[in-house]
Simulated scan of single mutants.
Amino acid sequence: MSKAGSYLKKHTEALVKDVGVEPACTLTGKSKATLGRYYSDHDEHADRFMPVDAVAALEAAASYPHVTAALAELNGTQLSFDDARRNDSGTGGVNADVIALSQRFAMLMAEYHQSIGDGVISAAEARRLLKETLALQQVLVDIKLHLEDGSH
């Protein structure tokens, strides 16, 4: 098995154990044996990996996006993990998202106004602006998901 495959299997195991084996079975509709095969390092299971829809279901319930983070690391990408995850419970739909978008944009502009006050944006100010930009981006993703889902 390749190093990347082994690395992904270890993170798949961490994901399943983070959620718990029984809840993982319920969330994915897979048996314990099937989930075990996804992270088994035995040669007969070397080409078996968890489907992305199962990864998504488990990562939504997990404390950390284990497999997504592993994929990002393998590709030289860095992720920013936010414990808050969503801007709302997901039940408000587009109207709630537009309100959140307005609030986040106002926060970004307030941070920008404060940062540019002396004519220079410091490294710490840039980090705060980036954090607000990422939060704004998450609201836009929420809007996109609600629109694609049809839950206006």
Rank of each mutant, 00 (worst) to 15 (best):
residue 148 E to D: 14
residue 105 F to S: 12
residue 22 E to Y: 11
residue 147 L to D: 03
residue 112 Y to I: 09
residue 7 Y to T: 03
residue 29 G to Q: 02
residue 16 V to Y: 02
residue 11 H to M: 02
residue 150 G to I: 02
residue 59 E to V: 07
residue 122 S to E: 06
residue 16 V to S: 00
residue 106 A to Q: 09
residue 77 T to I: 10
residue 64 Y to W: 14
residue 68 T to K: 05
residue 88 D to I: 02
residue 33 A to R: 14
residue 81 F to Q: 07
residue 113 H to T: 15
residue 134 L to A: 13
residue 51 P to S: 03
residue 43 D to P: 11
residue 38 Y to W: 05
residue 51 P to K: 05
residue 29 G to K: 02
residue 52 V to L: 13
residue 120 V to L: 13
residue 62 A to D: 01
residue 77 T to E: 14
residue 2 S to N: 11
residue 151 S to H: 10
residue 47 D to N: 11
residue 43 D to M: 09
residue 87 N to V: 08
residue 145 L to I: 07
residue 134 L to G: 08
residue 113 H to F: 12
residue 41 D to Q: 14
residue 119 G to W: 08
residue 133 T to D: 00
residue 122 S to V: 03
residue 29 G to W: 04
residue 110 A to E: 14
residue 93 G to V: 04
residue 55 V to I: 15
residue 116 I to K: 12
residue 135 A to W: 02
residue 144 K to C: 03
residue 132 E to R: 15
residue 129 L to C: 00
residue 87 N to L: 10
residue 80 S to E: 12
residue 60 A to R: 15
residue 17 K to I: 09
residue 61 A to Q: 03
residue 131 K to S: 14
residue 60 A to F: 11
residue 69 A to D: 12
residue 124 A to E: 15
residue 114 Q to E: 15
residue 39 Y to W: 12
residue 14 A to F: 00
residue 52 V to Y: 08
